[in-house]
């Protein structure tokens, strides 16, 4: 039964390599989803079913959706429709689809094994995980909540579109407006080519 682990590992490595070498962000994100699903299957093999579920929900779900939102936001324009046509060609789905098919075959195999653990050693039960999380690691949970709050406030502050009158005010104060970071960037001849 270790074959499930090894096949998932190979799929994870192939998908990750394809993700970081891809030229198109959306195609790379497709490969990254497959990579996270493969790692989730590795977690399940290693006796961590709760973590496997969280990997699928948070990594392959929420974080990838954030990436896709940003990729879509940055491409608003006339060429967006053409780009969408180029991104959703059928050829792009072959690689991630084949790798995901390997993973779903493994999942079906695991389902028909009718056992809760694949390898030696019993899996960590969710109750045990929760008891430890809210017992000795209570301080860590509090710190994680503060990290999430800081991330929320930071993302709101950075992602907010500045009002034009605010930048105008900053520009009219020559002494302090230089380093405040609020003014628009000086127009420089910026090389528009995105590094590949």
């Amino acid at each position: 039964m270790n074959a499930v682990y090894y096949i998932s590992s190979v799929v994870a490595v192939i998908a990750t390599a394809a993700a970081i070498t891809g030229l198109n962000p959306v195609h790379s994100l497709l490969y990254l989803i497959v990579s996270f699903l493969a790692v989730a299957l590795v977690f399940f093999t290693l006796g961590a079913p709760v973590i496997a579920a969280l990997e699928v929900i948070i990594y392959a779900g929420a974080i990838i959706v954030l990436f896709i939102f940003v990729v879509m936001i940055l491409n608003i324009g006339n060429e967006a429709v053409e780009q969408e046509k180029r991104w959703t060609v059928g050829k792009a789905w072959i690689g991630p689809g084949a790798l995901a098919f390997v993973l779903i075959a493994e999942v079906v195999y695991v389902l028909f094994q009718n056992t809760s653990h694949l390898t030696n050693g019993s899996p960590i039960q969710p109750s045990e995980l929760g008891a430890t999380l809210f017992g000795p690691y209570m301080l860590g949970v509090e710190l994680a909540s503060m990290v999430l709050l800081a991330g929320l406030i930071g993302a709101y502050h950075l992602g907010r579109r500045r009002q034009p009158d605010e930048t105008q005010q900053k520009r009219e104060e020559p002494a302090t407006g230089k380093g405040a970071g609020g003014g628009p960037a000086p127009k420089e001849p910026v090389d528009a080519s995105v590094g590949h």
């Binding site: 948070i58 954030l66 860590g140």
Partner: peptide, 20 residues
């Protein structure tokens, strides 16, 4: 697994700030 949960929390906060 609990440390993985903390890594997961940190990754979520990091990616939101990074994308902003």
């Amino acid at each position: 697994q609990i440390l993985f949960l903390f890594v997961l929390t940190m990754a979520a906060a990091e990616v939101s700030v990074g994308l902003a």
